[in-house]
Each structure stands twice: as structure tokens, then as C-alpha cells.
Write a protein that binds this DNA or RNA. Structure first.
Length: 456
DNA sequence: ATAGGGTTAG
């Protein structure tokens, strides 16, 4: 059916965009141009979304040219759609240009650019623009909170949320998913509990998005009971809800419970996806359920080969090598349907470390250094294998090599939350204000442990 | 009889 006017054509394009048929939307747009119908600002608003979804800069540029020819660049509606498109494509400069072309940019235009800044690692620019934009609504706050959270600025995300509440802006259901993820990243159980309470206060009931992040948040903070409780409260559980639960069990070393949750998930008629499988394999890994894990992998390989990704194969290598089944690991590695990346060899060398397999570790380290001469962790792992095996000469050789090549190791850290304050510690860290007391306590703990050993 | 910015699981 041909579209006679721009209104019905725009409606048809919009329907295609919303149902994810982006190629068809673009084709229909070209069609109506051919029919001599002149698109309006709403037409561009919807078709630019399809261009973003297709990640097609060429289509975007053609649309922009078309906008310019029609003299619509200064239109605020078209302008914000262009800003959004360029921001989503990672072309921040063009997004800024589109905002400058807009005669009277509004809260939507600014929010689109702020989201673009954050997505492209320009959080400073995002914050500056956010502070000076003429008007802010809940969506702009959500963009800042979500963007900061995704950029790893967890504390910033929480502070923004508090500030938003102080300014009297009511959070909505989109505020909480990212915020809870940030709090989980920070491991701040107490802060998360208050945010949970505030979500209930503002929203009454939580939707599946907030519910899912809550399940994951509690699990990642080690509070599995609360995680299960949050899971039970979700009305329309989807695969993400189950994944949050399964991964929570897996991360806390509860492999059997992860498997059991998976059985219940299947009973509801849901199929596993790549995250489910990853969580299950991870859970089996940490609980030593080698055969169970491998059989899950094989089943998925037969029934849903589409979900398999290199990281699943890497998990299987991990599974075998942790269990000291190096022959199985090597055979599996030799039969991969793709070239193994560096992570595969790292899995294997990790197992070598646990089981003191010096010879295998040496040959695996060669593979790793061939793929990435700057990889520090494999040097460290290799030196750990040597020191576990008592080959001190090899250890000092590796240490010298690390030093000569100027490699930096990424230091692991741990943290603890006390009264809503998260305290972070690195190895040998003395920066904490109560460092002396902490080390004194640590000494006395270590000493009493020794005493116990003596008694035994 | 059309519409724009923000959301979950590893």
C-alpha cells in the first residue's frame, strides 16, 4: 500500500523502527522520497533511530544531508535526533555540531549529548554540560547516573542520586538498575540497602529491571538470602532474572544451587542464553563440578550452538585445568573451532599454578608471550609456579625480566564496608588513617593462628 | 493522525 502523505508514511516507518525492522524502515524512507513525499521533523526523528540501531554512519550522513537540503537543521526535534544518532555512533564532534546547529536546544538535546559524552569516556565534559544546562529532568539525571555507572564512576553515581533526591526530583524505575549496579561494583551493602528502601518508597513495587539488578546486587555483596528474597519478589521473571540468580550462586561458590536454579528455570519453559551458560560453567568451575560443567557445555553445543562464544570454551579449559585434567584441557584446546586467544592460555597456566605443573606452565607462557609480549599476568603466574616448585633461580630470572621490560602489574585489592563507608586496601598499603591499628590487629590475628597450629 | 533523551544478568 503506497503512502500518500507524510503523516501515514511517518507512522509506517515508526512502526518498523519500533519493531526492530530497521532495514525495512530505511527502505521505506527511500521509497517515500522516490514518491515525492517530503519528510518532516517526525520522519527524521524516527528514521535516525533506525540508522543508529543499524550502526550505519553512511545512512546517518545521507539523512543529515537530506535534513540540510530541507533546511531542518535548526529544528529542535531533528537536532536532538541528530545529536542522539551521532552520540550513539561515537561521533562526539558531529553530535556537538548538531547541537550547535539547533536554534533552541532543549533538555532532550542536552541529555542526548551528555549520554554521548559519557558513552565515549568524556565524563568531565558530561558533568560540565550537565551543570550548565538550562533545565534538568529525571531523564537527564538518569543519563548522568547510568552513564557514570557504566564508566565505572560508582561513587559519582551514588552522589548524583543523593543530589537528585535533595533537589526534589523523583527518581523513576530507570534510575535504579544502573545505580544498584554501581553500588554492587563498590561492594557497598549498606548503601545498597538504603537505595533499595528508597526505591520501594518512591516506586512502591519494583519492575523486573530494578528487581534483576537487586538480585545481582545482593548476591555480589555476598548476601545470598536477600538475593533470593529479591528474586522471589519479581513478578514476571525473565531470563535475566534467572541469570542474576544463577551467577550469584556461581560467584559465591554455590555450584550445586546454581545447577538447581537452572533446573527450575528450564521447568518454567525458559531456555539458557550465553550468560546463563557462562554462569553455570563458572559455578561448576568454583565448585569443582567438572563433569557436570562439561556435560552442560556439550548439551548446549548440541541443542543451542548459537549461544556458544569463545568465553564458554575458555571456561571449559579452566574447568579441566583447575581439576588437574591437563590432558583433557589440551585435547579440548586442540579441537577448538577457532584460534585460541590469549585468555585460553591464561586459563591453562592458572591451572598449572594451582597444581605446580612447571613444565606445562613454561610452554604455555611461551604461547602467551608470543601473542602479547607485554602481558604481565602470565609472567607473574609463571613466577608463582616456579616459586611454588621452589625454583628460586627461575623466579629471580622472571622478576628481572619483568623489571627490564618495564612491565607494571595491576595490583589486586580488597575492601570492607563499615557503617556505609567502603575502605579499600592494596597489598602492603599503609595509606589508611588507622593503618597502625589495622596492622597491629592483623599481627595479633596471625599470631593467634600460629598458636593454634602449635596446639595441633 | 506521526515524535526525540535515560534501564537489568558475566
Amino acid at each position: 500500500m503506497p503512502h500518500r502523505d507524510v503523516v501515514s508514511a511517518t507512522a509506517a516507518i515508526g512502526a518498523l523502527t519500533r519493531s526492530g525492522r530497521h532495514r525495512d524502515a530505511v527502505a521505506l524512507f527511500s521509497g517515500i522520497l522516490g514518491d515525492g513525499i517530503v519528510p518532516n521533523e517526525f520522519t527524521f526523528g524516527t528514521i535516525l533511530q533506525s540508522a543508529s540501531a543499524l550502526r550505519d554512519l553512511r545512512v546517518g550522513a545521507q539523512l543529515h544531508a537530506c535534513v540540510a537540503k530541507l533546511g531542518l537543521c535548526s529544528n529542535v526535534f531533528v537536532g536532538s535526533a541528530l545529536v542522539d544518532h551521532y552520540a550513539k555512533m561515537g561521533s562526539v564532534r558531529e553530535a556537538q555540531g548538531a547541537l550547535q546547529d539547533t536554534r533552541e536546544p532543549n533538555v532532550v538535546s542536552y541529555t542526548a549529548l551528555i549520554a554521548g559524552f559519557l558513552k565515549n569516556g568524556m565524563s568531565g565534559d558530561a558533568a560540565r554540560l550537565f551543570r550548565c544546562m538550562p533545565e534538568r529532568n529525571v531523564i537527564s539525571w538518569n543519563a548522568m547516573i547510568g552513564g557514570s555507572s557504566k564508566a565505572g564512576l560508582n561513587e559519582e553515581a551514588v552522589n548524583l542520586f543523593l543530589e537528585m533526591c535533595r533537589e526534589g526530583v523523583r527518581p523513576n524505575e530507570s534510575t535504579f538498575p544502573c545505580l544498584l549496579t554501581s553500588v554492587a561494583n563498590a561492594g557497598a551493602l549498606g548503601v545498597g540497602r538504603s537505595i533499595h528502601a528508597s526505591a520501594i518508597k518512591f516506586l512502591g513495587k519494583l519492575d523486573v529491571f530494578a528487581g534483576n539488578s537487586l538480585v545481582s546486587f545482593y548476591a555480589r555483596c555476598g548476601s545470598l538470602d536477600d538475593s533470593v528474597l529479591a528474586f522471589k519478589k519479581i513478578k514476571n521473571k525473565n531470563v535475566v532474572s534467572w541469570n542474576a540468580l544463577i551467577c550469584g550462586y556461581a560467584q559465591n561458590g554455590r555450584g550445586e544451587e546454581a545447577l538447581d536454579a537452572f533446573r527450575r528455570m528450564k521447568a518454567t519453559g525458559l531456555k539458557l542464553d550465553r550468560v546463563t551458560l557462562l554462569g553455570l560453567l563458572f559455578g561448576c568451575n568454583h565448585a569443582g563440578l567438572v563433569d557436570e560443567g562439561y556435560s552442560l557445555f556439550r548439551t548446549a553445543e548440541m541443542e543451542q550452538p548459537g549461544v556458544l562464544r569463545p568465553e564458554h570454551y575458555a571456561c571449559v579449559v579452566d574447568l579441566f585445568s583447575r581439576a588437574k585434567r591437563f590432558d583433557d584441557a589440551k585435547r579440548f584446546l586442540e579441537n577448538l573451532p577457532f584460534e585460541p586467544g590469549i585468555g585460553f592460555w591464561k586459563s591453562l597456566i592458572g591451572g598449572c599454578q594451582i597444581h605446580w605443573n612447571r613444565e606445562l606452565a613454561k610452554s604455555v607462557a611461551k604461547h602467551i608471550h608470543a601473542l602479547d609480549p607485554k602481558d604481565t599476568s602470565s609472567y607473574i603466574l609463571l613466577s608463582n609456579v616456579y616459586s611454588a616448585a621452589g625454583s628460586w633461580q627461575d623466579v629471580s630470572m622472571i622478576r628481572r625480566e619483568i623489571k627490564e621490560k618495564g612491565l607494571k602489574r595491576i595490583t589486586g585489592c580488597s575492601w570492607i564496608e563499615v557503617q556505609n563507608q567502603v575502605h579499600v586496601f592494596f597489598n602492603g598499603d599503609r595509606r589508611h588513617p588507622k593503618s597502625d591499628d589495622i596492622y597491629m590487629m592483623l599481627e595479633s590475628c596471625l599470631n593467634s593462628e600460629e598458636d593454634e597450629d602449635c596446639l595441633v
